[in-house]
Nucleic acid binder design. Structure first.
Lengths: 263, 263
DNA sequence: GCGCCGACGTCCGCGTTCCGTAAGGAGCCG
DNA sequence: CGGCTCCTTACGGAACGCGGACGTCGGCGC
C-alpha cells in the first residue's frame, strides 16, 4: 500500500509527460491517491511550459514523445534546475537507459510497468532528493560547528584545519561546555591514557587555542582554571557562577569511547 | 524475491488461474515443459487459497472468472506481497488492459494467444522481476552520474572506464557523501573483508582519483582525512549549512550487500 | 597451447604532517 | 621573593599518505 503524505505538509507536485492519455490517466490516479499533486502534459512544448509554470518537485517523463524528443525535454527541464526525473523507456531498450543516464534521469522504469512500482519509485526518488533536515549530530557553540561524522570543524563558516588530537579535544569540549576538567581527566577522556606526561595536554590546548581563539594570548573559549585545568566557555554560559552547571546535554560519564574516537 | 529456475535451484512456481480447463491444461503443459512448477486454480477463492499455500513466483490470471472478479483476485494476491502477475484479457478490450495495469499487473496477454508467447512473457517477467529490487536509481553528485544497475559511470557526460573495485568504491562514496570513513570501514563496506592490507584501499582511492579528479594531485572530490581515512565531498556539502547530507537512516549489516553491489 | 594485457594486491622509498617531550620564560599566589 | 603553575617555542622521531613499481592471476586473442 502506498502511504499518504503528511497532512499539513504541502503535497509534492509531480508532472507526468506522456502522449498516451490512458497511461497518463492511470498513473495520475495512482499518484493522486498516494497523495501527490499531479499535473499532466501531452507533448514536449507543453511539458516545458508546465514545468516552468508549476515548478514540479518531480517529473515522470515518457521517452517516446511526438514532436520533441523526450531526451531533449529532459535536458531542458534539468537545465533550469535540479528537478528529479523518472524516465519511462521501452522494455529492454538498453540504449535509452544509457542516454537517460547521460541526460540526467534519476531513475527509469521500463514499459510495461505496474503503476504500483512507479509510485514506489516516485516515493524513493523524492525521499532521496529531500534536503537533509537539521542534522542533530553537529555540535555548535560560540560560532563553532563541529561535525564528528564528517570530521569537519568550522568557525564562523570557514573551515578549520585541525589535527586528530585537536579535533577530538575540541569535540570533547563542545560536548561538555562550562565544566572544568583537570589535565588528567582530559588525558583520560580524549587520549584514553591513564598515565603520561600531562604537558601533552597543555601543548595541545595551546595549539587548539591558536586555531579557534580570536586572540590566543587572551583566550575566551578555552579558559584556564588555575590549579585545576581548563574549561570551555560559550557565550551563553557566561556570568553564572554555577558550581554544578550541567548543560542540557544529558551525556554522562564514559563518554570517552564516543568522544575520543578510536581506542 | 524468489529464485528462478537455475539448475540446482528450485523451479519457479507459476500459478495459473483460469476457469477453462482446456486452456489451463495447454498452458500448463507448455510451462511444465519450459521447466516451471505449475499449479492451477479454477476460480477466485481457489486462486487465493493456492496462492497463500504455494507462494508462487508468478501468477497467470484470467480476467474473466466465475464468482469473483479477476481484478479483485489480482488486488488481493498483490496485497500480500510483490508477486508478478500476467493478465489474460479479451482481445482489443482496452478497458480491461487499463484496469489490469491499474490493479498492478506486470504484463498482459490478449486472447486468443499462442502458448509459446505466454511462455516468453512468463520468462520475461520473471527475469525482469528478479534482478530489479526496487532501489536501482542513478547516483548523482558533482558532475558524476553512476548507474549501479547498468554499471556505468559518467563524468560531465563522458563515460568513465572504471574497474569493478573503482566502480564499487565510487558508488559507495556517492551513497554517503560528506562522511569520513576509515580504511577499515571502506575495506569492510566495499570489499567485504574484515581483515587485509589497508594499503589496498589507499591504492584504489589513488587510482579512482586519477580517473575522476580534475587534478589528482590536488583532489577535490575524495578528500584525505589525515589519520582517519577519506571523505567524499560534493560542492554543496561545503560550509556550515548542511555539513551532513547523509540521512541518519538505518545503517545496518545489510548495507554492505546493497552498497558494494552484488559482485 | 601460448603469449599479451588488464586488474588487483603488495611492497618500498620519499616527503610531509603530526605528536610527545623538553626547556626556558612569564604569570600567579602566598 | 620563592615556589608553583602555566605558556611558549623548538626539536627529534614516529606515523602517515603518496607515488611508483612489481608479481600474480585470469581472460582474451592469436
Amino acid at each position: 500500500m502506498e502511504q499518504q503524505q503528511d497532512p499539513g505538509q504541502a503535497r509534492a507536485r509531480v508532472l507526468i509527460v506522456d502522449d498516451d492519455p490512458t497511461v497518463a490517466e492511470i498513473v495520475s490516479g495512482y499518484l493522486d491517491r498516494a497523495g501527490y499533486d499531479v499535473d499532466h502534459a501531452g507533448d514536449g512544448p507543453d511539458a516545458l511550459a508546465r514545468a516552468a509554470a508549476h515548478r514540479p518537485d518531480l517529473v515522470v517523463l515518457d521517452l517516446m514523445l511526438p514532436g520533441m524528443d523526450g531526451l531533449e525535454v529532459c535536458r531542458r527541464i534539468r537545465g533550469r534546475g535540479p528537478v528529479p526525473v523518472i524516465m519511462l523507456t521501452a522494455r529492454g531498450d538498453e540504449d535509452d537507459r544509457i542516454l537517460g543516464l547521460e541526460v540526467g534521469a534519476d531513475d527509469y522504469v521500463t514499459k510495461p510497468f505496474s503503476p504500483r512500482e512507479l509510485v514506489l519509485r516516485v516515493e524513493s526518488v523524492l525521499r532521496r532528493a529531500r534536503p537533509a533536515p537539521p542534522s542533530a549530530a553537529v555540535l555548535r557553540a560560540a560560532g563553532l560547528a563541529v561535525d564528528p561524522v564528517a570530521r569537519r570543524a568550522h568557525k564562523n563558516g570557514t573551515e578549520l584545519a585541525l589535527t586528530i588530537r585537536e579535533f577530538d579535544l575540541l569535540a570533547f569540549f563542545l560536548r561538555h561546555p562550562g565544566r572544568a576538567f583537570t589535565r588528567e581527566e582530559l588525558m583520560h577522556q580524549v587520549w584514553g591514557w591513564d598515565f603520561g606526561d600531562l604537558s601533552t595536554v597543555t601543548v595541545h590546548v595551546r595549539r587548539l587555542r591558536g586555531k579557534i581563539e580570536d586572540d590566543p594570548a587572551r583566550p575566551r573559549l578555552i579558559q584556564t582554571v588555575w590549579g585545576v585545568g581548563y574549561r570551555f566557555d560559550t557565550a551563553d554560559t557566561h556570568g553564572t557562577g554555577t558550581p554544578d552547571a550541567t548543560p542540557p546535554d544529558a551525556r554522562t560519564a564514559d563518554a570517552r569511547a564516543s568522544d575520543a574516537g578510536e581506542g
